[in-house]
Design a protein around this nucleic acid. Structure first.
Length: 566
DNA sequence: GCCGTTTTCGGCCCGACTGTTTTCAGTCG
């Protein structure tokens, strides 16, 4: 993955934030943000080529990026970091608190962190301050709580890329096995810390501690080393004996509840299960592979994503473990964007990248006009449809679907009249505004959208953004019953900071007979690869290919969409 | 700071909501 790109983009984004806070010109702020987004979404590694070739990067930003690549920062960034404390920047992550208010609180009242802000509110120091009434105070307190509750957990996209980076950095001579375990292997949507197991010489620990991504060594023992990375995430590296690899992977993958269930079974047979193996007294029954351990206990191997003590052990014992959907099962992606709206890659480039994934079909679903900032018009959509049709001739093996991502208005209606909507091959309808409606209003809104025969898929249904925005409040049971009745699919949005629907709601929806679409919601070429996270959610909810419309052959999909002419 | 079928300057995705205000600034998508 494009780690260097992400790091450079993060530095530019931070610079944009600092520049905005220190009163910098708003258009220049946008230039930095735009460049950051473009670099993060650029398919090629910027350290290999000329960063000026990235759209939105000109002379000045290229210089900054080049300096960043050579020494991990750039002069202007250092300077602004010196002027704005880190805690003040963190304050802007509090919902409803932007750069203006944060810098005001800092410069006028000396408030320099979310904790200091909470204290100031508690002490009544904001009373009577212009622009900060009682409601604002209450919202800020709520926002701080929300932020602290998210704690140091990160979403799976960050954790996975970090784990892969760590593993790549340690996979040298003498390392016989190395893999991540824990909640990351179980594909949870948020991760507290990363567990990595290795069969390797003891010297690996030393190498690990010396890695550039290590900010602090928390513990350094013979078998386990814990560090905090520069990104703030804790990573534990454990050395395990080669003959215990399977047992260690099983033990450290968890979940705790799943392992308790498994160990109980071992105890009932008079055995003992630990991270070193399954034992009868001193005799090893199984330890080298997870498969052997599960087999000894009378079960097939259980996919890590199902190990939550949610009935998987009983199902496995009965031989009734469902065959959950895998990444290879996906035949297409039904929610993606291009630079016609807020994507950064062209239609041709996105389609070419999709074709490389071997998809049988691929939908382009740019935003619709009610999201005004996207500047979509009917003319633009129809012109895009022509371009899609022309492009189709170059991809005989992959059916291009011209779709759109509609906006579900406060009353449940969507953009464009029926005759326009009928012209799309597929529609995804999503909530992008009015997140604070009452539960009853929100429920009615979704139900109206599901009952609209022109709506095929409800996009990122809860609209949550992990660590940033709470899910909307709605009666999901009611909505799922409706969606099952109307044949409206619920999306599993694979974009890792959304991970939406979450697995618990997918389970509930499945119980009511709802179908799903696992979509990347890509805004750039690298995002297409996020589908693995959506598949993880689907597995955690025990979905099979029958539940997921974009694992189906084209004909069956088109019939589901009511576009069944082939 | 970037960009150019308005081309080297003058534009730059726009509108709604919130909480405060008494006419609007800040934040968000």
């Amino acid at each position: 993955m494009a780690r260097v790109n992400d790091e450079a983009a993060a530095a530019l984004q931070e610079y944009a934030d600092l520049f905005a806070m220190t009163g910098g010109d708003a258009f220049r702020v946008r230039s930095y943000q735009k460049a950051a987004k473009a670099i993060a979404g650029h398919p090629e590694d910027i350290s290999g080529g000329d960063v000026r070739s990235v759209p939105g990067v000109g002379e000045a930003i290229a210089k900054k990026v080049e300096e960043f690549l050579s020494r991990g920062s750039f002069r202007q960034l250092d300077e602004l970091r010196g002027r704005v404390p880190e805690g003040v920047r963190r304050m802007t992550r509090i919902p409803s608190l932007g750069p203006k208010k944060a810098i005001f609180l800092f410069s006028e009242l000396g408030i320099d962190s979310p904790a200091a802000l909470r204290e100031a509110i508690g002490a009544g120091r904001l009373a009577g301050v212009k622009g900060f009434g009682p409601r604002t105070e209450a919202n800020l307190l709520k926002g701080i709580d929300q932020m602290e509750q998210a704690g140091r957990r990160v979403h799976i996209g960050i954790a996975m890329e970090l784990a892969e980076q760590v593993i790549a950095s340690l996979s040298g001579e003498g390392v016989r096995r190395i893999a991540y375990a824990g909640s990351l292997r179980r594909m949870k949507d948020t991760i507290g810390d990363i567990d990595i197991l290795a069969v390797a010489p003891a010297s690996l620990m030393e190498e690990f501690r010396a890695m550039p991504y290590v900010a602090e060594v928390i513990a350094a023992g013979e078998k386990k080393t814990s560090v905090r990375t520069t990104g703030g995430v804790q990573v534990d590296l454990r050395l395990v004996p080669a003959e215990s690899w399977g047992a260690a992977m099983q033990y450290f993958t968890g979940s705790k509840e799943h392992n308790v269930r498994i160990r109980e079974m071992a105890v009932k047979k008079g055995w003992k299960l630990s991270e070193y193996g399954l034992f009868e007294g001193e005799r090893v029954i199984a330890s080298r592979t997870e498969e052997e351990i599960y087999a000894a206990l009378g079960m097939p191997w259980i996919p890590p994503s199902m190990r939550e003590d949610g009935g998987e052990v009983a199902a496995a014992l009965k031989g009734g473990l469902p065959e959950v959907v895998t990444l290879d099962d996906l035949k297409g992606d039904l929610h993606t964007h291009t630079d016609l709206t807020d994507g950064i890659a062209s239609l041709a480039d996105m389609v070419a990248a999709a074709a490389r994934l071997g998809y049988a079909y691929y939908a382009i679903t740019d935003h619709a006009p009610d999201l005004v900032m996207q500047r979509m018009t009917l003319d633009k959509a129809l012109a895009q449809r022509d371009r899609v049709a022309r492009l189709q001739t170059s991809y005989p093996g992959m059916r291009l679907l011209h779709g759109t991502e509609l906006n579900i208005g406060p009353d449940g209606t969507v953009d464009w009249p029926v005759e326009v909507l009928e012209g799309f091959d597929v529609t995804v309808a999503s909530v992008h505004s009015h997140f604070n409606q009452s539960r009853a209003e929100m429920t009615a809104r979704f139900i109206a959208a599901c009952e609209n025969p022109q709506v095929h898929i409800i996009g990122h249904p809860t609209t949550r953004k992990l660590g940033k925005r709470e899910p909307v409040d709605a009666d999901w049971e009611e909505i799922f019953r409706c969606a099952a009745r109307t044949g409206t699919a619920m999306e599993i949005d694979s974009y890792p900071d959304r991970s939406d629907l979450p697995a618990e709601l997918v389970r509930l929806a499945r119980h009511h007979g709802v179908k799903f679409s696992i979509d990347s919601d890509s805004h750039a070429i690298p995002h297409l690869a996020h589908q693995r996270y959506g598949v993880g959610i689907a597995q955690r909810a025990w979905l099979t290919t029958d539940d997921v419309i974009n694992t189906w052959p084209l004909e069956r999909l088109l019939a589901f969409l009511g576009r069944g002419d082939g």
